[in-house]
């Protein structure tokens, strides 16, 4: 049975009269690193939410490892192996950071895969260690800076040990130095292996990002969205030469 890792077919989603996602189709392989770019409001976040079943599409299909995603519950999809971060970080503000990550570690997927890890805290701690905020494990999430919240989002997502990781602007709000660190972590994660008690499958990733220069160093393919449609899909160097892409970006930059 030949089926792709992730297949998105003619996906549509409207909010009221606004077509946020219009006939989007693409597919990706198990080992791929995909960059998803586009001007503000292009529908990138909406696309990620459709893939994780947070939103339900008006029509179209999303298949993950041959299984339909549309109509399933978000937690089902996450336990199937897709994890995502939120662009506008959504931590549990009044809980300590470690507890934020423990929630992910308590998901059936994480529990099943870490059977030899009796202590959920230890695994959560390793996820924090990987994200680089383990020193603040006991602080309340409300005390974190923007950059650290980004890392918390990443820690929460990888704690479920996904096979497909969706990162929504992982560099947003980070300083250049922090961006480099984050990019390095992402590359290490993609390579896979063991980080303490946390196991990385070497997940495929879809990375939404506005910092193109940084993004180009990590991904090996870029999909460009504009007004909810895919206007370009290819290797990074080609895509940035593409006329439609330049127009879309310049049109935005001209405002």
């Amino acid at each position: 049975m030949a089926h792709g890792f992730l297949e998105v077919e003619r996906l549509q989603k409207s909010f009221g009269g606004l077509r946020a996602i219009n006939e989007v189709s693409f597919s990706m392989e198990r080992t791929e690193m995909l960059g998803l770019i586009g001007p503000n409001g292009a529908g990138k976040t909406t696309l990620l939410r459709l893939i994780t079943a947070v939103l339900r599409p008006d029509s179209g299909r999303v298949r993950f490892k041959g299984k339909n995603v549309v109509g399933r519950r978000t937690w089902d999809v996450v336990n199937q192996g897709i994890a995502c971060t939120f662009q506008n970080m959504r931590p549990f503000r009044r809980l300590p950071i470690i507890a934020n990550v423990m929630v992910s570690c308590l998901s059936p997927r994480a529990m099943k895969r870490g059977e030899w890890v009796k202590r959920v805290e230890a695994k959560a701690m390793d996820a924090l260690e990987f994200a680089g905020i383990s020193d603040m494990a006991l602080e309340k999430a409300s005390t974190l800076s923007q950059g650290d919240l980004k890392r918390l989002e990443v820690a929460r997502a990888i704690a479920t040990e996904p096979e497909l990781l969706l990162l929504d602007e992982p560099f947003g709000g980070l300083s250049p130095a922090e961006t480099d660190l984050m990019a390095q972590s992402i590359r290490r994660l993609h390579k896979g292996g063991r980080f303490g008690r946390l196991h990385s499958e070497g997940p495929a990733m879809i990375i939404v990002e506005h910092k193109l220069q940084q993004l180009m160093k990590i991904v090996d393919r870029i999909v460009v969205l504009d007004f909810g449609t895919v206007i370009a899909d290819g290797v990074p160097d080609e895509v940035v030469q593409n006329e439609d892409v330049i127009k879309a970006y310049l049109g935005e930059g001209g405002i």
Binding site: R73, W75, V78, A83, R90, V103, P108, A159
Partner: peptide, 10 residues
């Protein structure tokens, strides 16, 4: 929503 996105059956 964030709990669901963490894979927990809320």
């Amino acid at each position: 929503v964030a709990v669901r996105a963490s894979g927990i059956n809320t």
